[in-house]
Computed example of a mutant assay.
Amino acid sequence: MAVEIIVRETDTGLEIVSGRRRLQALLALQDEVVVMSPGIGEMVIARLPDGRLQGSANPEHVALFRRPDTSGNPATFA
């Protein structure tokens, strides 16, 4: 499953503009998810033990947490 969220940069980090519900649903199933954000590209979002969200667009972090799509298409990742 892939999800797209739109974020904007603020003084304190990134703020989710849209896609928060879908992201929360994915984070209810696993602690880290890879998402696509226009203007940023792929990024990994992780839920920290205290409930805060932390994101990274570092390609090494994205590759570490990318999971194969379960639809049977090996060329797509979510």
Rank of each mutant, 00 (worst) to 15 (best):
V7R: 04
M1H: 09
T70A: 15
Q24H: 11
T12L: 12
L27C: 00
S56H: 09
D69F: 08
T10C: 06
L48E: 14
R21W: 04
D11P: 07
G55A: 11
M36E: 13
Q30T: 07
M1I: 06
Q24C: 08
D31E: 15
T12H: 13
L27M: 05
G55P: 04
Q54Y: 02
G72W: 01
V34P: 07
E42R: 15
G55F: 06
V33D: 05
I6W: 03
R21A: 03
H61E: 14
S37G: 03
V17R: 12
S37D: 02
T10R: 10
F77Y: 11
T10L: 09
P38K: 01
R22M: 01
V62E: 10
A2H: 00
N58V: 05
L14A: 04
E60F: 15
L23I: 08
T10K: 07
P68N: 13
V35N: 02
L53Q: 10
F77P: 01
I40L: 15
S37W: 05
V7G: 11
G72A: 08
G51Q: 05
R8K: 09
A57C: 07
D31R: 13
E32I: 00
E4S: 14
R52N: 14
M1A: 11
G13P: 03
L26T: 01
V44A: 14
M43A: 12
I6H: 10
R52E: 14
G41M: 00
A46V: 06
S37A: 05
F77C: 09
N58Y: 06
V35T: 02
V35P: 01
R66Q: 13
G51S: 08
F77A: 09
I5K: 08
F77R: 11
V17I: 15
Q24G: 00
N73R: 15
I40D: 11
R20H: 08
V3L: 12
A28M: 01
I45L: 09
Q30W: 01
A28P: 00
P49F: 02
L29I: 00
M1D: 06
D50F: 02
N58K: 07
P74M: 03
L27K: 01
G13W: 09
I16M: 14
A78W: 00
A78Y: 06
P68T: 11
T12Y: 15
V62Y: 13
A63D: 10
T10Q: 10
V34A: 02
D11F: 09
E4V: 13
A28S: 08
V62S: 12
I5H: 03
F65P: 04
G13V: 00
S71D: 14
E42W: 12
G55C: 11
T10G: 12
P59F: 03
P38S: 03
V34T: 07
P68L: 14
